[in-house]
Design a protein around this nucleic acid. Structure first.
Lengths: 132, 132
DNA sequence: GTTCATGCAAAAAGTTTGCATGATT
DNA sequence: AATCATGCAAACTTTTTGCATGAAC
């Protein structure tokens, strides 16, 4: 196991990501850090996020041509329920879906199944705001 | 209902997309058309694909920073089983997953749920090729 | 004849990379 | 002291946009 070095930049990214509520882009994370006085290079933010994704500390979501990241519970496979208005996210686990994905893959002769499951909707607050 | 105009370019894109087996990028579709003698502008391909997605004639899939498109059965919600080696895709319908998504959204106070479900794996051929 | 899609080229947006420097081990 | 991450800027990729022309209505 090739251990990566510990740098305050990487830690700053990890911590800033943890402070966010929903998914954030690398660019907006970079701005936040810069505004907060932690001048970390944009390239470093990208590199740190790629590392975090690889180690399972963060989830990535490609959307509208950009990658969005969010800190996540490591080691456990899960999905997201995402508000398409305010961006609020809820982690959801879905054993039924895991089983279904495995079954559907097998039925079609596919092996080594992975899956991407995300549910988008309007959260309670945003629903109320629109109704009101 | 504001109808769009019919142009041979739009028809060429629709038809080229229908001829593909899996998901293709706008760029590769543009190359195919060009190689086949149908000189359609790249911007037009992008615009046509956006239209097709909007009318439900095509599915889009954002991956690795690019959008991939595929002709699909219109009007019916479905998902994809995608071979991550050769790109072969199978359309799958999943009523259980539809129900689950709706339930999960409701349980968390979310309304108007939409979902993204894709299963990636190795298709039978690619599995065999690797084993061999 | 008017409207709107095309095509080109330029711009925009997001991400990656090369290389010198300096921090981490 | 040797290694490897950083930071900057430049390169790259994908997608969008402005505008003149020509096709569709």
């Amino acid at each position: 196991m090739t251990a990566r070095r510990n740098t305050w930049q990487k830690e700053a990214v990890r911590s800033a990501l943890g402070r966010e509520d929903g998914f954030v882009s690398a660019q907006s994370l970079h701005s936040s850090l810069r505004d907060a006085g932690s001048a970390v290079g944009l390239a470093t933010v990208y590199r740190a996020l790629a590392d975090l994704e690889e180690t399972g500390e963060a989830d990535a979501l490609r959307q509208d041509g950009e990658s969005l990241y969010r800190a996540c519970t490591p080691g456990k496979h899960h999905h997201h329920l995402i508000c398409r208005s305010c961006g609020k996210t809820v982690e959801i686990t879905a054993d039924e879906v895991e089983d279904w994905a495995r079954a559907v893959a097998a039925r079609n002769g596919f092996t080594q199944p992975e899956h991407v499951v995300d549910v988008f909707g309007l959260c309670a607050e945003c629903t109320a705001r629109r109704a009101g």
